[in-house]
């Protein structure tokens, strides 16, 4: 049952991603709607699969890489739909759904077994810490897609070749505004995630900070986004620079997420 739900969600996301890529080359109102429907169905089924797994395992399904990737993807779709609801920018899907699909695909190839929760994770902090971290990172993931859209639209305007996606991409101001909003929501979430993690670490391992690779890389991420916000407010680093920084920031997050778990030895690699 859980497997069926997961595979079904993956299939719908795949369909949505394919449509979203077709959308780039040959968009219409219908294809845009179809993409949203496919992604929406994927999201509902995905939610069901997470709830099902929660019920089966008895704890939040974010303790293996398989679960974490899947949950990360779920948070990204959630934010995507919130933005879609507010701004109605169909073409946004083409820049965000592929990220979702890649996350889901990596989740699907990772071992899927349900492990009993190790004693150190048995705490309400698990929910608090991970939810904050995932939602924050998902906001940054969407900011990454928006950043690419900004650079593309800026390129059209600067080069004065107004073909292709120019008409369907929203204005620079809107893209910059969305980027700013996402980062100013993501940043406090990340901050709280790190603080709650430190508090939890003190309870579980006896110290707030242990220079664990995950902790270090999260701190680097935190500094990057702190910088993004700081230079925007003080030096007016908006638009292009903000877009580039949010693309760099998300690359670091991806490394923190996958790289640290696979390449470095960390207290955070659980599976």
């Amino acid at each position: 049952m859980g497997i069926i739900l997961f595979e079904l969600a993956l299939t719908f996301y795949f369909a949505a991603t394919v449509i979203s890529i077709v959308e780039v080359f040959k968009g219409s109102k219908e294809s845009s709607q179809l993409m949203l429907i496919a992604a929406g169905l994927g999201f509902l089924i995905h939610s069901a699969s997470i709830i099902y797994r929660y019920a089966t395992a008895g704890h939040l399904p974010i303790t293996s890489m398989h679960e974490a990737s899947s949950f990360f993807a779920w948070c990204v779709v959630l934010i995507f739909f919130l933005l879609e609801y507010r701004y109605k920018i169909g073409i946004m899907g083409s820049f965000i759904l592929p990220v979702v699909f890649v996350l889901m695909l990596s989740s699907s190839v990772l071992p899927r077994g349900i492990h009993p929760l190790s004693p150190v994770l048995q705490s309400y902090w698990l929910g608090v810490h991970t939810l904050l971290a995932f939602l924050g990172n998902a906001a940054f993931a969407v900011a990454f897609g928006i950043g690419i859209m900004y650079l593309l639209q800026e390129h059209y305007l600067k080069s004065k070749r107004l073909h292709g996606l120019f008409q369907r991409l929203p204005s620079l101001q809107i893209l910059d505004e969305i980027n700013y909003r996402l980062i100013s929501v993501g940043f406090p979430l990340l901050t709280l995630a790190i603080i709650s993690g430190a508090l939890w670490a003190e309870r579980a391992w006896g110290s707030y900070w242990r220079w664990d690779p995950k902790e270090v890389w999260s701190m680097i991420t935190w500094f990057i986004y702190a910088l993004v916000l700081h230079v925007r407010l003080t030096a007016g680093w908006r638009g292009r620079r903000a877009a580039i920084l949010s693309i760099i920031g998300f690359s670091v997050i991806l490394f923190t997420f996958f790289g640290v778990n696979f390449l470095l030895k960390s207290l955070h690699s659980f599976a």
Partner: peptide, 24 residues
């Protein structure tokens, strides 16, 4: 169709571009 969507005079094209930069 998108027959009436794009500006076909210089002055309207200027406004259209302004909207792609500033929205409102």
């Amino acid at each position: 169709t998108r027959i009436a969507e794009n500006a076909v005079s210089i002055s309207f094209a200027a406004v259209e571009l302004a909207r792609k930069i500033f929205t409102d």
